[in-house]
Write a protein that binds this DNA or RNA. Sequence first.
DNA 1: TATCTTTGCTAACGCTGTTAGGAAAGCTAA
DNA 2: TTAGCTTTCCTAACAGCGTTAGCAAAGATA
Lengths: 199, 199
Amino acid sequence: MGIVERKERQRKEVRDSILEAAWRLVNEEGWQSLSIRKIADAIEYSVPVVYDHFENKEAILFEFNKLGFKLLGEKIKETKEKYSTSAEQLEAIAYTYWDFAFKNQEYYQVMFGLGMPGCDQVKKMPEILNFTQTIEAIIKEIVDANSNTEANTHLKLNTFWSMLHGLVSINLMTSESKEEFNKMILKDFISVFIKGLEK
Amino acid sequence: MGIVERKERQRKEVRDSILEAAWRLVNEEGWQSLSIRKIADAIEYSVPVVYDHFENKEAILFEFNKLGFKLLGEKIKETKEKYSTSAEQLEAIAYTYWDFAFKNQEYYQVMFGLGMPGCDQVKKMPEILNFTQTIEAIIKEIVDANSNTEANTHLKLNTFWSMLHGLVSINLMTSESKEEFNKMILKDFISVFIKGLEK
DNA sequence: TATCTTTGCTAACGCTGTTAGGAAAGCTAA
DNA sequence: TTAGCTTTCCTAACAGCGTTAGCAAAGATA
């Protein structure tokens, strides 16, 4: 008898509908105005039902955090496979990262808005680990190719990600959409960074 | 008769005590848990009195935003005056910026946590304008000295600030205090950036 | 059919930002 | 000094928030 299976299925349906409703609400009104009560209203259940599926509000946000990193990681990987040289890959990845942040602002906000994932957290989240390892591998290739033993790849990854995040997060919040200017900044950053790697 | 003067003085005293109490609360419990009621309690007035001095909670935060930029701007200026060459100045400024962010985390959080100041806002806030102009002037010097007409100083300023902010904001949230590693990243960034300016 | 478990609800607690409306105190002028 | 007016300040409320205790109804099991 598939009673437990059906129950599990139904349970998953409610859980999914919570995430779905939350995502819709976020896109309509932003993270700031998301509330458990609104979610409950949207899924046509009472408030405590939401708490049967998520420990608290933060857990719901965390779900999107993970989802965001998963999505970004996939896009990064796809980009990587389109190019052959490491330098090209790194440059293209920076653009992909940039594009992702601007086209999925809601994701990016919840990925970094709540608090940047610390090194300890990164190791426990496969979604982030997957993302960082892809980039670190490319950086290592460039460094190795230039027999630059000085450059610590881990340090360079941190630099790369930090700067990219800085560029994105600052330009994301500038209301004006001076896209060309932004692209120039990004181009500037990448050329400078890669030069630093090859040194 | 100095009645109106006394009233103004008393009014300012209350206003100052609000900011003072808010600042103390923030340092004790963080921005997240700051509330108007707690402020009112601390200054031994009722809640609406707070609203007589500040339109809303955001206005109080904005006050610290401005204060933070003023403080940072002053430190940047002091740093600049300690060095003679532009490259040295820029490097020292980056360290000062970094130091400010880590030693005044509460300020830095409210300066950037609420939403980065857009270009439109920057122009209306003398505190920020003062800060950006100081740096832009230095960058311009370096660019001019290298007869590098290509480099748009405005663009370079944006790049400089963005990257610095990225480095800081990511490393600020990493709970572990691997200070040496952080300093290496910063050093790496500066050398790479200045090379890009001289090109 | 009786028992037990799961499911989902109402209602509440203790917070939050914000504001309406009234009481009291202080000042001004007759 | 007293009447009127202005400023100051409070109580109390509104509408929202995250979260949880406790109970009713529905479903599964024996």
